[in-house]
Design a protein around this nucleic acid. Structure first.
Length: 549
RNA sequence: GACCUGUUGGUGAAGCGGUUAACACGGUACCCUCUCAAGGUAUUAUUCAUGGGUUCAAGUCCCAUACAGGUUACCA
């Protein structure tokens, strides 16, 4: 019996052989240095910071070399697959405005992009290996495998199915066929030719040269359900999809020897490898990978809920991803992430701790660089889903809201108090009548807490001094005039020299005005607030205070 | 047990054999100031996990130890 006939018995019901697929997916016609990258999640839920971080490199590297970045779904483990997992992943990317050049939804010439739909392809290549006597059917039961393992553990030997521990690697064809005919369950194992004593070198783009022992494990390549294992699918897919750069988490470094041998045994050219260190988090003393189940700040939805823009997340990832990016970005505030050239050699080798403080800081800087009109658009969109009440107000009062957002914005160094869209309401609610009059208020009069004195200051100020048409200097001079009249120091230096001869100082007077309009003792520039509020709103607030206090 | 990788301040890190260990976030103090924020100024690692070695010279090269992380599945 020929090897071909034998392989047809071991893996039946395949119409095409591997040469068909080789021809179907030819070398890509791209510029020489163009990178073809892929992001290959298993559909176990949603995208989280960790996977987003990896995908960021895929996207960025492909983009900056005019290459291709595609999305491949690795759903070869039925037990782990979550319902709507694929949709979840695609929607998360959509919410971040991330699009892939090829993938399950948009298709592409190298599809299908879902592994469970590529069964025949894997089988065709498994058959090739069987024909070449580089793979074989294995009939070991779970119990047998466990026995081998315990024996190895007790004897402190290397664990696994390799060499003489592989009971069926040298089984004759006839015997194997007899077992198959008798319906003995089997899987397909790779027949390793490696020697553990030999060394191979992984020249990793991020971590540098890593020396490892050659693979000698007869790993499973096709499982009993007919689907491939990760190792086999990775090698076949990345070859057929013509991936040039495999960028993946560094938990895969240890299995590189397997991949290395598999690529070579199949006659495939090896792609470049870049193993990315994970984003980690500290739990007590222990450091672990960011987990989408344990860490709420790992989920992408956490940020959309808070109203942290996708661009900020990308900025944060870029900062962690390439040392030097942050520096470059602060020097070139007008350029974008896509203008920066990312390099593998500048990526961190060890894991980086996730720093939400840093992310917030990036966000504040980002918001401070935006125009009021831009923030208005984002706010409208955000509140549409997360704050209907505020959304009504924002939509009705577009111009006013924009003016509010513009306070202390058209200056050289704008305020940095907004870190997310959800902050805006907390920061500015008192500017809006609907929120101001409905809310339970706590007037933060502190130093001056005498009711009569407050009433007197307000009365004097609004009756005799305040004029909305004044420019800022005139406005403030009038506040000072009021100080002089009432016995408060209008000059802070004088006050500091002789605090005892005054009732207080100009800041006390300003605070009374500020609190009476906003209830808060700490707000942005009072003049600008009054300008934006306008006479009508100011009067309403003064009346309200007089009647309720 | 075996095989990999890492360890620089509160955090992220730069550093690639040669005078005072970049930068950013955070902290502290002061200044400015109508409050806050911002801004300005100063300050925040005599030392790069520890111990040996190589060298005229080491965070940087070598070895050992400790600690941390990963892998060791018909999971990816």
């Amino acid at each position: 019996m020929t090897n071909k006939e034998y392989s047809n018995i071991v893996i039946p019901e395949i119409s095409k052989d591997w040469t068909y697929y080789e021809n179907k997916y030819p070398e890509r016609n791209l510029e020489k240095c163009a990178m073809v990258t892929r992001f290959a999640p298993s559909p176990t839920g949603f995208v989280h910071m960790g996977s987003l971080y990896t995908s960021f490199s895929d996207l960025q590297m492909a983009k900056q070399t005019n290459g291709v970045a595609y999305l491949r779904i690795e759903d070869t483990d039925g037990k782990r697959t979550v319902e709507n997992g694929v949709e979840g992943i695609i929607n998360d990317f959509k919410s971040l405005n991330i699009t892939w050049d090829e993938g399950p939804t948009q298709g592409g010439a190298y599809g299908p992009y879902i592994q469970s739909e590529r069964m025949d392809i894997y089988k065709a290549f498994a058959k090739k290996l069987i024909e070449e006597e580089k793979a074989y059917p294995c009939f070991m039961t779970e119990d047998e495998i466990n026995q081998v393992r315990t024996m190895q553990e007790v004897g402190k030997l290397r664990i696994g199915i390799y060499g003489t521990y592989s009971k069926y690697r040298n089984l004759g064809k006839e015997e194997a066929i007899a077992k198959i005919k008798a319906d003995t369950p089997y899987i397909i194992r790779f027949k390793s030719n490696g020697n553990f004593e030999n060394k191979i070198i992984l020249d990793d783009l991020i971590k540098g040269k890593i020396e490892m022992p050659e693979n000698d494990q007869d790993i499973v390549i096709i499982k009993s359900d007919g689907l491939p294992t990760y190792h086999f699918a990775h090698v076949v897919d990345d070859h057929l999809m013509r991936t040039t750069h495999v960028i993946r988490g560094d938990e895969w470094v240890s299995s590189y020897p397997i991949h290395d041998e598999l690529f070579k045994s199949l006659g495939f050219k090896l792609p470049y490898f870049a193993h990315i260190a994970p984003i980690t988090i500290k739990e007590g003393e222990a450091i672990r990978k960011l987990s989408k189940r344990k860490d709420k700040e790992a989920a992408i939805s956490y940020y959309s809920q808070k109203g942290i823009p996708a661009d900020v997340i990308k900025l944060y990832l870029a900062t962690v991803n390439n040392s030097g990016f942050e520096d470059w970005y602060t020097r070139n505030p007008n350029l974008t992430i896509d203008d920066y050239t990312f390099e593998f050699s500048k990526m961190p080798i060890g894991g980086s701790l996730f720093d939400i403080e840093k992310l917030n800081s990036i966000s504040r800087i980002y918001f401070s660089s935006l125009t009021a009109a831009k923030i208005y658009d984002g706010l409208k969109e955000y509140t549409e889903t997360y704050d209907k009440e505020f959304n009504e107000i924002v939509k009705r009062e577009k111009e006013y809201t924009t003016n509010v957002l513009n306070i202390e914005r058209n200056i050289a160094k704008p305020r940095k108090d907004i870190s997310s869209y959800s902050d805006i309401k907390d920061l500015n609610w008192y500017m809006f009548d609907e929120l101001f009059f409905e809310k339970e208020k706590n007037y933060e009069f502190q130093k001056i807490n005498d009711k009569n004195e407050i009433a007197n200051i307000i009365k004097e100020y609004f009756n005799s001094y305040f004029d909305l048409n004044d420019d800022k200097d005139t406005w403030f001079n009038k506040v000072k005039l009021l100080c002089d009249k009432l016995g408060y120091a209008s000059n802070m230096k004088e006050f500091k020299q002789n605090p005892d001869i005054f009732k207080g100082n100009v800041s006390d007077i300003a605070t009374v005005i500020r609190v009476s309009l906003t209830t808060k003792s700490q707000t942005p520039d009072l003049y600008e607030i009054m300008q934006v509020m306008g006479m009508d709103r100011i009067n309403k607030r003064i009346d309200y205070l007089n009647n309720n206090r």
